[in-house]
Measured scan of single mutants.
Amino acid sequence: CSVCSEPIMPEPGRDETVRVVALDKNFHMKCYKCEDCGKPLSIEADDNGCFPLDGHVLCRKCHTARA
């Protein structure tokens, strides 16, 4: 995971895991958050999703503030 540096592995008792890929980086679902404010990001293409800027994973509000 690009945030916590832990491997993305299935939880005990499970055969599969879910990971998020954004900007060629891999994330646990729980680690997929705005780099500035820490708001959890949605994997859907909506207002709560990722608004990347200069290689950073940001929420819409933080993207607008940086732009």
Rank of each mutant, 00 (worst) to 15 (best):
S42Y: 01
F51C: 05
G38C: 12
V20Y: 01
E11Q: 08
A67C: 04
M29P: 12
K25A: 08
C4Q: 01
S5N: 01
T64K: 11
A45V: 11
E16M: 04
V20T: 03
V20H: 07
C50K: 04
L41V: 03
S5D: 12
E11F: 08
C62D: 04
D54V: 03
V21T: 14
V18H: 15
C62V: 01
V21P: 13
I43S: 14
S42K: 10
F51Q: 11
C50V: 11
D24V: 01
D15S: 10
G38S: 11
P40V: 08
M29L: 12
P7I: 13
C50A: 13
E16L: 02
I8S: 02
L58G: 02
D47H: 09
F27L: 10
D36C: 14
D54Y: 04
G38P: 02
T17Q: 04
R14F: 09
R19S: 11
P12R: 10
G38Q: 12
R14K: 15
N48K: 14
C37H: 00
S5W: 05
L23V: 14
K33G: 05
R14L: 13
Y32P: 01
R60I: 05
F51N: 05
A22E: 14
V57C: 05
A67Y: 02
C37F: 00
E44R: 07
V20W: 06
A67F: 04
A45L: 07
K30D: 08
L41S: 01
P12V: 10
F27A: 04
P7T: 12
G38F: 08
K33E: 03
V21S: 13
D47C: 10
C31H: 03
T64W: 07
K33I: 10
D54T: 03
G13W: 03
G55H: 07
P12W: 02
C31G: 01
P10E: 15
P10H: 07
C37N: 02
C37I: 01
K61S: 11
C31A: 01
V21M: 11
V3N: 08
C31M: 01
C62S: 01
K30S: 11
K33W: 01
E44T: 06
C31Y: 00
S42L: 03
P12T: 13
A45W: 04
A67S: 13
F51P: 06
S42R: 06
C34G: 02
F51M: 14
R60V: 13
S2A: 06
E6V: 04
E6Q: 10
D15C: 08
G38A: 11
C34T: 01
S5R: 12
C37Q: 01
R66Y: 07
S2Q: 01
R66C: 10
F51T: 09
C59L: 00
M9L: 08
P40E: 12
D47L: 05
V3P: 01
K33R: 08
G13F: 05
G13V: 08
R19H: 12
G49K: 14
C50R: 04
D46N: 15
I43F: 06
E6M: 07
K61D: 13
D47T: 14
C31Q: 00
R60D: 05
K61G: 09
C50L: 05
L41C: 02
L58C: 05
K39H: 09
N48E: 12
P40Y: 12
C31D: 04
A45D: 11
V21G: 10
N26Q: 10
K61N: 09
M9R: 12
P52I: 12
I8R: 01
M29A: 15
D24A: 08
C37M: 01
A65E: 14
T64G: 14
P7E: 14
S42V: 03
C62R: 00
D47F: 05
K30M: 04
S5L: 13
M9G: 14
V18A: 15
C4N: 01
D47E: 11
P52R: 08
A67V: 06
Y32A: 02
V57T: 08
K30Q: 12
C34F: 00
G55W: 02
H56E: 05
I8K: 03
R14G: 04
H28D: 02
Y32K: 03
R66F: 06
V57S: 09
T64F: 11
C4F: 00
A22G: 12
C4V: 00
A65Q: 14
S5E: 06
A67D: 15
K25M: 11
H63L: 03
P52A: 13
G55C: 06
G55A: 08
I43P: 15
K33P: 01
K33A: 08
E16G: 09
E11L: 08
D15Q: 07
P40H: 07
T17S: 15
V21I: 04
C4Y: 01
T64Q: 12
A45N: 14
E35C: 00
S42A: 10
